[in-house]
């Protein structure tokens, strides 16, 4: 196996001693098949134990190892070193407050995710004895793509509108709202519209499309938001021009 010396720059920040984050450089002997996360783990194990970062599954499922790799939001476990030059720069995910080194504060995202009610709100109350909620393969496929989100928040780090207007609900939370709206068993769209159809909801999005480009799971949050814009626009015209159509 071939080994390659890679210069890894990490943006360090210690909230107790630092006024601002600063880059620190490490020279890492990397194996051919390594991903960026392996190089950072090597640094922590062999060079500098004080480097802080989040990771768990090492297989692009848990969504915790998102970082800026050479300025691009990426899962560090899915970023193969062979695709990068001999010098790489690792920073914490953009647009989030830095807690320490590569660890960011996700409270804002969690709060917004909660607000869009990302769970099934049943159309009709059914007891166990009434039997199961049936769903056809076509009904499942209508929303399946949007279930693939792993809450890695790369889309928030890519979205300039979230960076500029922190009140924006943002891509992943919107895509999940859309996922439940599209579910044939769900009847909660009207409740979610109270968040989705506001200025901070879909209307803060200007369809940059960056979220969908960086999504490691091809969820396409940008598409979900545009579809919700169209649906919200139809709602608005119905409500204001066809008041008799009210349910």
């Amino acid at each position: 196996m071939s080994e390659r010396q890679v210069e890894v720059e990490i943006l360090r920040y210690d909230p107790e001693t630092d006024q601002a984050p600063k880059l620190q450089s490490y020279s890492v002997p990397c194996q051919e098949e390594w991903v960026v996360l392996d190089a950072i783990t090597y640094i922590k194990d062999h060079i500098d134990t004080t480097v802080s970062f989040r990771w768990s599954c090492h297989m692009a499922v848990c969504g915790s190892c998102g970082m800026m790799v050479n300025g691009e939001p990426a899962l560090s476990c899915k970023s193969f070193l062979r695709d990068y030059p001999d010098k790489i720069r690792i920073e914490p995910l953009a647009h989030f407050p830095i807690v320490r080194d590569l660890v960011v504060q996700l409270d804002d995202f969690m709060e917004k995710l909660n607000r869009v009610k990302p769970y099934i709100i049943p159309k009709e109350k059914k007891s166990v004895s009434d039997g199961q909620h049936k769903q056809s393969p076509a009904q499942l496929k209508a929303f399946k793509q949007y279930t693939l989100c792993i809450n890695c928040t790369l889309c928030y780090a890519a979205c300039p509108q979230y960076g500029l207007v922190p009140d924006f609900i943002g891509p992943a939370a919107m895509a999940l709202a859309h996922r439940y709206n599209l579910d044939s068993r769900d009847g909660g769209r009207e409740q979610r519209q109270e968040v989705v159809a506001t200025d901070e909801g879909v209307w803060e999005c200007s369809f940059v499309g960056a979220c969908s480009e960086v999504c490691p799971k091809q969820v396409d949050p940008a598409g979900a938001i545009q579809q919700m814009k169209i649906a919200s626009t139809v709602d608005w015209y119905k409500e204001h021009l066809m008041p008799w159509s009210k349910p």
């Binding site: 920040y13 210690d14 909230p15 107790e16 630092d18 601002a20 984050p21 953009a94 647009h95 407050p97 830095i98 807690v99 320490r100 504060q105």
Partner: peptide
């Protein structure tokens, strides 16, 4: 958590 989160 001590110290303060850094906002870019």
């Amino acid at each position: 958590m001590s110290g303060k989160a850094y906002i870019r």
